[in-house]
Simulated assay, not measured.
Amino acid sequence: MLYAYCNGVYSSRRIAKASRERVDFMSIVGLDAPDFRTISDPQAPSEIARQSIAQVLKLCAQAELVKLGHVALDGTKIKANVSKHK
């Protein structure tokens, strides 16, 4: 998911599709593409996932690519009254 988010792929269905069709995603998932329901499952991440994310963040911090802090994803949908012709 971290790689997908960095590449602008946010939808679980698109991540699953990319895992089947794109070579860069295939190399990460090891040709074992997850179902979109597995990706969007709200359960807590496994211990392996936590360790992997921690390692990636530590490497990024050492390379001064990021500053560590809080990250939040907001899925708020707001109904808009906008016409594409205006």
Score class of each variant (00 low, 15 high):
Met1Phe: 07
Leu2Trp: 00
Tyr3Gln: 04
Tyr3Trp: 06
Tyr3Glu: 02
Tyr5Asp: 00
Cys6Gly: 09
Asn7Lys: 14
Gly8Arg: 11
Val9Pro: 07
Val9Leu: 04
Val9Arg: 10
Tyr10Arg: 01
Ser11Val: 11
Ser11Tyr: 07
Ser12Trp: 01
Ser12Val: 11
Ile15Pro: 09
Ile15His: 08
Ile15Glu: 06
Ala16Lys: 06
Ala16Met: 06
Lys17Leu: 14
Lys17His: 13
Lys17Gln: 13
Lys17Pro: 03
Ala18Val: 09
Ala18Trp: 00
Glu21Gln: 13
Glu21Ala: 05
Arg22Trp: 14
Val23Phe: 03
Val23Leu: 11
Asp24Arg: 02
Asp24Gln: 05
Phe25Gln: 03
Met26Gly: 07
Ile28Thr: 00
Val29Gly: 03
Gly30Leu: 06
Asp32Asn: 13
Ala33Gly: 10
Ala33Ser: 15
Pro34Asp: 04
Pro34Phe: 02
Pro34Asn: 03
Asp35His: 12
Phe36Gly: 03
Phe36Glu: 03
Thr38Ser: 10
Thr38Lys: 03
Ile39Cys: 06
Ile39Phe: 08
Ser40Met: 07
Asp41Ile: 00
Pro42Met: 08
Pro42Asp: 14
Pro42Leu: 09
Gln43Leu: 00
Ala44Pro: 06
Ala44Cys: 00
Ala44Tyr: 00
Gln51Gly: 10
Gln51Asp: 11
Ala54Pro: 03
Ala54Val: 08
Ala54Gln: 10
Ala54Asp: 08
Gln55Cys: 07
Gln55Phe: 10
Gln55Ser: 08
Gln55Tyr: 13
Val56Phe: 06
Leu57Ser: 01
Leu57Tyr: 00
Ala61Ser: 14
Gln62Ile: 14
Gln62Pro: 04
Ala63Cys: 12
Glu64Arg: 15
Glu64Ser: 14
Glu64Asn: 15
Leu65Pro: 08
Val66Lys: 01
Leu68Gly: 02
Gly69Ala: 03
His70Tyr: 00
Val71Ile: 01
Val71Tyr: 01
Ala72His: 01
Leu73Trp: 04
Gly75Lys: 08
Gly75Pro: 06
Gly75Ile: 01
Gly75Met: 10
Ile78Leu: 15
Ile78Phe: 12
Ile78Asp: 12
Lys79Gln: 12
Ala80Cys: 14
Ala80Tyr: 09
Asn81Val: 05
Asn81Lys: 15
Val82Arg: 12
Ser83Asn: 09
Lys84Asp: 03
Lys84Trp: 12
